[in-house]
Simulated assay, not measured.
Amino acid sequence: MRESWRWFGPDDPVSLDSVRQTGATDIVSALHHVPTGDVWTVDEIQKYKSKIESGNSEHSQLVWSVVESIPVHENVKLGREGCDRYIDNWIASMENLAECGISTICYNFMPVIDWTRTDLKYRLSSGAYALRFDQKKFAAFDLFILKREGAYSDYTENEVSEAHDVYLQMSDEEREQLARNIIAGLPGRMTDAYTLDDFRKALAEYADMDHDQFRQNLAAFLNRVLPRAEAIGTHLAIHPDDPPRDMLGLPRIVCTAADLDTLFESHPSKANGITLCVGTYGSRPDNDLPQMARRFGSRIHFAHLRGVIRDPKEQRSFYEAEHLNSDIDMVKVISELLKEEKKRTGSESSPTKEIFIRPDHGHQMMDDIEKTVNPGYSGIGRLKGLAEIRGVIRALSATL
């Protein structure tokens, strides 16, 4: 497996020199400064690639191998007239990346917002901090802070009552912080943060969008992109919706194994693959991650290895756990990925032989607690996760 590390560019609190010390060999990054919908030019890609790889002559090697992400313009997701030019630009960016030697692209088709959490610094019993999604807090935001039109129809009477109690118990400052946590531009987004009014307007654009139409919009995108990706040897790896279920009245279509079956039945191209985000899929109790890793192994081009612990009383609530101590059997997942790599050996028709993996998210802990960090992307917590994952890989590899 190829050990990779998410890096957010020169302003990332975790420097490339620090990344080298983790033992990771591959960088996962993006041109965060390029506006959504614009073309990533060869010149800009090469400049960024040079920043990452310029120290290789004197230090251990780092290679920009995976893009996360080229954002898909909202007009494409909405299927608006004239969106073809944004798809053309996406294809041009993909082609330019391939010209520069980068052929694995993680992307998502989540409407309006990227991954969503209610708490960006949830204190654990160990004293470390984790990301958390609290369903009751989220409902309180949706119903009583955002006051989304039609929101009440998404909740039972008991859920509305519980959310109201949570809302009343929060101070004004806590309510403002909750809103910022949910709608702010989090790592992985390439747009400015929304105001509440902006957010309401963006959500309203999807008022008449159902799952079938949204799948058709994804299909229209892939119909254009996949033939070219296959021709140039690029592997696309769609990331699941996070959390993997409908929310805020938005249709979500990459949440379960059944969703992936639908995706591959409609678009069987070998370039059409997935990012196996273990923590995201694992936040649904009906997703069996070892089974999914086995079933979709040939489609896995990239894997985010993290786990979550779901609230036993409210399965939609979870916090991000230690990488090897969660509701997900990470050892079994890694075993399935290693078996898939072994299958690929000697197969000319397979995607890249080795699967890119990265320790996704990590606890804010030890010296990082007082530092400014990108939520979920502090250095020490991810280093701990990578070390644990590396140990599992070494141990399992000796027996396969």
Rank of each mutant, 00 (worst) to 15 (best):
R123D: 05
L324M: 11
H239M: 10
T104M: 11
I102M: 08
E176W: 04
V331D: 01
P187K: 06
R382L: 03
H59F: 10
S54N: 13
M292F: 08
R215Q: 09
L338F: 05
L222M: 14
S4E: 00
P111G: 00
K137D: 03
K201C: 14
L146K: 03
S103V: 11
S126K: 07
P351F: 04
L120Y: 02
E388R: 08
Y152W: 11
P251G: 02
L78A: 10
G82W: 02
G249L: 04
K313N: 10
E159Q: 15
P13N: 03
G101W: 03
D197K: 14
V72K: 01
A30Q: 04
I145F: 05
P351L: 09
K332Q: 14
I45T: 01
V278D: 00
V308T: 02
G391Q: 05
V278L: 06
P111T: 02
L78E: 04
K342M: 12
I355T: 10
K51N: 12
H164W: 12
T234G: 08
F109C: 11
R148C: 03
V331P: 09
P351M: 07
K201F: 08
G297L: 07
N217H: 15
W115A: 06
G37T: 11
T191W: 14
D261V: 13
L78Q: 08
A184Y: 08
H323T: 08
L203M: 04
L226I: 13
E341F: 12
I105G: 03
F133V: 06
D210W: 01
N217Y: 07
V28P: 12
D26K: 00
P111F: 02
A395Y: 15
D241P: 10
D17R: 04
